[in-house]
Design a protein around this nucleic acid. Structure first.
Length: 423
DNA sequence: TCTCCGATTAGAC
DNA sequence: CTAACGGTCTAATCGGAGA
């Protein structure tokens, strides 16, 4: 009995979210930029056709974009996260066995579904009608083949957004896989494609039938699993429960260079607040914090300095104030006034669930959720009135580090005050 | 010799 | 006017230190 595993992937997700509330830009080429308006991270079909590449630095394609009347928008993650939740909750009704794989992708196990073909098209219509987001559906016996099937559904308009690899006989499988290059395979990136090419493996079909022991010894266990998955043998399980994070990072590139230690500490307090809020959201404590500073690595003309300092906490905690004290101390330890800093951040690690907490006489008192009453109150207020309603330390009072976001759309679905008619 | 650990690499999106 | 290139996260692997 072959598994019928579907991978549903939203089309040009961030751009589709932006277009939902801007019907006027449905035909204009649109791109969405990464934080700090740095790189292109989502493109409409028109923008792709013009030749704007995924991940391309914005300053590099700005001219080309201008020539073609491309609209560039800053990323609005509150909007994308909210729409993603809507899409995922629709998809989850199709099977309890599903995995939200990323902000715009979900695996759904449709094994045993009657009239699978009809259901797949219905699912697609359902998501478009209820959330406004267009998606494609790829189905296969393994995760890797479901992803590949999704790629086929996206690329061939004749598929009408749905492609089931399981419907192909051996001969048609071979023909299809022979037309797809290895870099389209999940888990095969730029470097590995290059190395595979040295072994004369260019197409997915060649990878599927490559000599397994050689593949294993040359490329490791991950590649062997990928090959087995391409052969239809499932090696990567569906992750139905979302595991707790083992590491939480909050970092940002600055809008411009920063030299003042107080500005760095101000930025750091914002990162600490974000990271600790995430830690509390999953009801965990961290036992180790790491803080890092970066000069601008692209400025070859400037001296480079990228220190990183870690400190074990006296007791595991998720208290923003406690963490901020140490983070500020670490910044001072590493800071050298002669450098211009472009990026900084904090890493929380050695994370454990609050239920494992061993009481410490010196530690502040915490409640059942593992946080102090103060932190719980801050989280509630920020949830109710928006992130940053209650701040720790200076957190953003100093100007000069905030990221560039010159083209951000309103938070249409999560903030009443940003609805156009409310202004 | 075995195990543990940190650093490095590769990938996803 | 000029400079302008993201952020988070995981798993595997490797080499050295220490038991």
């Amino acid at each position: 009995m072959k598994q019928q595993l579907a991978l549903i992937d939203c089309n040009n997700f961030y751009v589709s979210c932006e277009r939902l509330f801007r019907p006027d830009i449905r035909k204009t080429p649109v791109v969405v930029l990464s934080n700090n308006d740095g790189c292109v991270v989502s493109r409409s079909n028109e923008a792709k056709a013009i030749g704007i590449r995924m991940g391309q630095p914005w300053f590099e394609c700005k001219e080309l974009a201008k020539e073609h009347g491309v609209l560039a928008l800053s990323s609005n993650y509150a909007l994308y996260a909210d729409l993603s939740n809507r899409v995922m909750s629709i998809l989850s009704t199709y099977s309890p066995r599903h995995e939200v794989y990323s902000i715009d992708e979900c695996f759904v196990d449709l094994t045993g579904t009657a009239k699978l073909r009809d259901v797949s098209y219905q699912m697609r219509e359902h998501v478009i009608n209820w959330s406004g987001i267009p998606v494609c559906v790829g189905i296969g016996p393994t995760k890797t083949l479901a992803k590949l099937a999704n790629f086929v559904a996206k690329r061939h308009p004749r598929s009408k957004g749905v492609f089931n690899y399981n419907d192909l006989n051996e001969q048609r499988q071979a023909k299809l896989l022979g037309q797809i290059t290895v870099d389209e395979v999940w888990g095969v990136g730029r470097r590995i494609s290059k190395r595979l090419a040295e072994h004369n493996i260019h197409t997915v079909e060649e990878l599927r039938h490559a000599h397994t022991p050689t593949l294993r010894s040359e490329f490791g266990v991950v590649m062997e699993k990928t090959q087995r998955e391409l052969q239809g043998i499932a090696c990567i399980d569906l992750q139905e429960v979302v595991p707790d994070k083992q590491q939480i990072i909050s970092s940002r590139s600055f809008g411009s260079m920063v030299q003042d230690v107080d500005v760095l500490k101000d930025a750091m307090s914002t990162f600490v607040a974000n990271a600790c809020a995430k830690l509390r959201a999953q009801e965990s404590h961290a036992a180790l914090i790491q803080v890092f500073l970066h000069t601008n690595r692209f400025r070859k003309d400037l001296p480079q300095y990228m220190p990183c300092l870690a400190i074990p906490l006296p007791y595991p905690t998720n208290d923003s104030l406690a963490v901020n004290k140490w983070a500020g101390f670490l910044v001072e330890q590493m800071y050298k006034p002669e450098y211009q800093y472009k990026k900084a951040g904090i890493v929380l690690s050695e994370i454990s669930p609050v239920t494992h907490y061993q009481g410490d006489l010196l530690a502040p008192e915490i409640t059942e959720t593992g946080s102090t009453k103060l932190m719980t109150a801050i989280d509630q207020l920020n949830q109710r009135f928006g992130r940053g309603a209650v701040k720790i330390s200076t957190q953003g009072a100093h100007k000069g580090w905030q990221m560039k976001q010159e083209r951000k759309s309103p938070c249409y679905t999560t903030n009443w005050n940003e609805l156009p008619h409310a202004q």
